[in-house]
Amino acid sequence: MAFNSADRIAVSTWSLHRMLGTTYPHNLDSLEIGPVQETYGEVDESLLDIPSAIANRGINRLELVSFHLPSKDPIYLGELRSALSNADVTLQTLLIDAGDISDPATSARDTDWIWSWIEIANQLGAERARVIAGKQKPTRDALDLSVKALTTLAERNAGSKVRLTTENWFDLLAEPAHVHYLLDKLDGRIGLNGDFGNWGGPTKYDDLRAIFGLAETCHAKADFVDGKLDESDYGQCLQAAEEAGYKGPYTLVFQADSPDEWAGIETEKEFIEELLK
Rank of each mutant, 00 (worst) to 15 (best):
V65H: 11
S66C: 13
S66W: 01
S66V: 10
F67C: 11
F67P: 11
F67V: 10
F67A: 09
L69D: 02
S71I: 07
K72Q: 14
D73I: 01
D73Y: 02
P74E: 07
I75V: 14
I75G: 10
Y76F: 15
G78A: 09
E79N: 10
E79K: 11
L80W: 00
L80D: 01
A83G: 13
A83I: 07
L84F: 11
S85N: 14
N86E: 15
A87C: 12
D88I: 04
D88Y: 04
D88H: 13
D88F: 09
V89D: 10
V89W: 14
V89L: 11
T90V: 14
T90E: 14
L91Y: 04
L91R: 02
Q92W: 02
Q92T: 15
Q92I: 11
L95G: 03
I96K: 02
I96M: 04
I96Q: 01
D97Q: 06
A98M: 13
A98D: 12
A98Y: 14
D100S: 08
S102V: 11
S102C: 10
D103C: 11
D103Y: 05
P104Y: 05
P104F: 08
P104G: 13
P104A: 14
A105F: 01
T106P: 00
R109S: 06
T111M: 02
T111H: 08
T111N: 05
D112P: 00
W113H: 11
W113C: 00
I114Q: 09
I114H: 01
S116M: 03
W117G: 04
W117H: 13
I118E: 00
I118S: 03
I118K: 01
E119C: 06
E119H: 03
I120N: 00
I120K: 00
A121G: 09
N122H: 11
G125Q: 04
G125L: 03
A126I: 01
A126C: 08
E127F: 03
E127N: 13
E127L: 11
A129P: 04
A129I: 12
R130H: 08
R130P: 06
R130C: 13
R130A: 08
I132Q: 02
I132K: 00
G134I: 03
Q136C: 12
K137T: 13
K137W: 08
K137A: 15
K137P: 05
P138Q: 12
P138T: 10
R140C: 00
R140K: 15
R140N: 14
A142N: 15
L143W: 10
D144M: 14
L145Y: 06
S146M: 08
V147Y: 03
V147H: 01
K148G: 00
A149Q: 13
A149P: 05
L150P: 02
T151M: 05
T152V: 05
T152Y: 04
L153I: 12
L153F: 03
A154R: 09
A154G: 02
N157D: 09
N157S: 12
N157P: 03
N157Q: 07
A158N: 08
G159R: 06
K161Y: 06
K161R: 13
V162G: 04
L164C: 08
L164V: 10
T166H: 05
T166E: 07
T166N: 07
E167Y: 07
E167D: 10
